Each structure stands twice: as structure tokens, then as C-alpha cells.
Deep mutational scan, measured.
Amino acid sequence: TLDDSATICRVCQKPGDLVMCNQCEFCFHLDCHLPALQDVPGEEWSCSLCHV
């Protein structure tokens, strides 16, 4: 889900339109996540760090 609060991106440390991982609660810009996300993920989304 998009989170436009004062939360910062885990990768670039900047605020903005972010998606939050449902497991670790880290936030990412779509372009900062590795691999980059093309679209906003669904409600139950886990980042690539949680899939390691």
C-alpha cells in the first residue's frame, strides 16, 4: 500500500510515495526496491529482503 507519511525509504533515506512491507515494515520507493516495482503491490506484500 502507498504510505505518504513522514516515513523514509529504506534504500535512499528520503520521504515520498512509499510502499511498506507487511513483514518487516520497511518502506521503499517503487524504483528503489530491488528489483524495482512496476506497480504498487497488493495489500499483502513482502519485500525482497524478507524473501532471502
Rank of each mutant, 00 (worst) to 15 (best):
T1S: 11
T1R: 03
T1I: 11
L2N: 13
L2H: 02
L2F: 09
D3M: 03
D3L: 08
D4A: 10
D4N: 14
D4M: 14
D4L: 14
S5P: 09
S5C: 10
S5A: 04
A6M: 12
A6F: 04
A6E: 15
T7D: 13
T7K: 12
T7P: 09
T7Q: 10
T7A: 10
T7G: 09
I8K: 11
I8E: 12
I8R: 14
I8G: 04
I8S: 14
I8L: 13
C9Q: 00
C9S: 01
C9K: 01
C9E: 00
C9A: 01
R10M: 10
R10G: 07
R10Q: 07
R10W: 02
R10S: 15
V11W: 04
V11M: 14
V11P: 01
V11G: 08
Q13E: 14
Q13T: 11
Q13V: 03
K14I: 00
K14F: 04
K14N: 04
P15R: 06
P15W: 01
P15M: 09
P15H: 10
D17N: 08
D17Y: 03
D17M: 05
D17T: 11
D17G: 14
D17R: 12
L18D: 01
L18Y: 02
L18G: 02
L18S: 01
L18R: 01
M20V: 06
M20G: 07
M20P: 14
M20Y: 07
M20Q: 13
M20W: 01
C21R: 00
C21K: 00
N22V: 09
N22Y: 05
N22D: 08
Q23G: 15
Q23R: 09
Q23P: 00
Q23S: 11
C24E: 02
C24A: 02
C24Q: 00
E25R: 10
E25N: 01
E25I: 07
F26P: 00
F26Y: 10
F26N: 10
F26R: 12
F28C: 08
F28Y: 11
F28I: 12
F28L: 05
H29A: 00
H29F: 01
L30P: 10
L30A: 10
L30K: 06
D31R: 06
D31I: 03
D31V: 08
D31G: 12
C32M: 00
C32N: 03
C32T: 00
H33Q: 13
H33A: 12
H33P: 06
H33C: 15
H33N: 10
H33M: 09
H33L: 10
H33F: 04
L34C: 15
L34Q: 13
L34H: 15
P35L: 03
P35I: 07
P35H: 04
P35E: 04
A36T: 09
A36I: 04
A36L: 09
A36Q: 02
A36P: 14
L37T: 13
L37G: 10
L37M: 11
L37P: 10
Q38R: 13
Q38F: 05
Q38T: 05
Q38A: 12
D39W: 03
V40C: 05
V40P: 15
V40T: 07
V40N: 08
V40S: 10
V40L: 08
V40I: 05
V40D: 12
P41W: 07
P41Q: 09
G42L: 11
G42C: 08
E43Q: 07
E43W: 09
E43K: 09
E44S: 12
E44Y: 10
E44H: 12
E44K: 09
E44Q: 12
W45T: 03
W45D: 03
W45G: 10
S46F: 10
S46C: 10
S46I: 12
S46R: 11
C47I: 00
C47T: 02
C47M: 01
C47E: 07
C47D: 04
C47V: 01
S48L: 04
L49C: 07
L49M: 13
L49V: 11
L49G: 15
L49T: 15
L49Y: 14
C50N: 03
C50H: 13
C50K: 11
C50A: 11
C50M: 02
H51D: 13
H51R: 14
H51F: 04
V52S: 14
V52W: 01
V52Y: 07
V52I: 05
V52Q: 02
